[in-house]
Design a protein around this nucleic acid. Structure first.
Lengths: 153, 153
DNA sequence: TTGTATATTTGCAACGATTACATTTTTTAT
DNA sequence: ATAAAAAATGTAATCGTTGCAAATATACAA
């Protein structure tokens, strides 16, 4: 069976092994900017022998082939985005959902960085999204009694 | 002796202990977006008993008081910036120096994120700065034979 | 088909940045 | 001077990620 992800990998000189196709399918289907554990926990249901190392290796390969962009909106964890067009991200500190933002920073470069060559853009925002549940007065509290937003003591 | 950093901390409700003043002085003087090790290695010369945990604790406190912003321009390591005004960063992948960039993204939010509340901006670029040594043909190679810029195999 | 080289996956150990925590030291107030 | 509080220290633990060698799957030549 030849899936969309399958041909996508072939077009980009990535040997479409079973695991690679499944991981790419996950990224294309969910569009949820997942971290390694999200991918692993979801796929291991149908692939019990899946290894995290395989996911790390596969994503490193995808990044090298520019099929995936790494996303460091969270301090201690990489996330991955199968959309490699230039765009920004907004993370709601209440629901955790990451939203894509259109971006055009073409003009800024000239004035600010004369003679610089820019290879990567990373634009991330954090705040509260417009869902009612993310803007009500009683914010979620974590184990330290702080809201998700506030820095812990 | 009352230094500039000393009063700065007092003004922001941070008890200006010896270590805290020294760390803040380092940030204000160097403006080099350091990571923990850069601060530690520099300060331990005059403070042999300094502990890394103290630096982590102190920076966490500074961040909580909005005296310092964490910077995740590198994947696996936090850097710290004593300039908390909104601005962007450019990291040269050859010389590693991080340059501040003026930013004005005020307009973008309205259209893209209706009803969203933005608390943090993070805008990072990577590329080559305009120093001659960072643009010559023979780029530095790392142990894998890749340039600093290219992703490793 | 069989054998063999190559590519890929797996599991586990190791690494490095960060955090937890208990102890020690310093500061503050009485 | 003493007791209480705050801060700093050192070590162990945690967690995301990487290294590596063994196991498995794939491709290809004879």
């Amino acid at each position: 069976m030849t899936t969309k992800a399958d041909t996508y990998l072939l077009e980009n000189n990535v040997n479409p092994s079973y695991q690679r196709v499944k991981i790419m399918e996950y990224l294309l289907r969910k569009k949820n900017h997942p971290n390694i554990d999200m991918i692993f926990n979801n796929l291991k249901k149908e692939m019990p022998k899946l290894s995290k190392t395989t996911i790390y290796n596969t994503l490193k390969l995808f990044i090298k082939r520019n099929l995936v962009s790494p996303l460091t909106i969270e301090d201690n964890m990489l996330r991955y985005d199968a959309d490699t067009k230039i765009h920004g991200h907004f993370k709601c500190i209440n629901c955790g959902i990451i939203t894509d933002i259109n971006l055009d920073l073409k003009n800024m470069n000239r004035d600010e960085l004369p003679g610089y060559t820019i290879f990567e853009h990373h634009v991330n925002f954090k705040g509260r999204c417009n869902k009612k549940s993310c803007n009500k007065k009683s914010f979620n509290k974590n184990k330290n009694g702080n809201t998700n937003w506030e820095k812990s003591a």
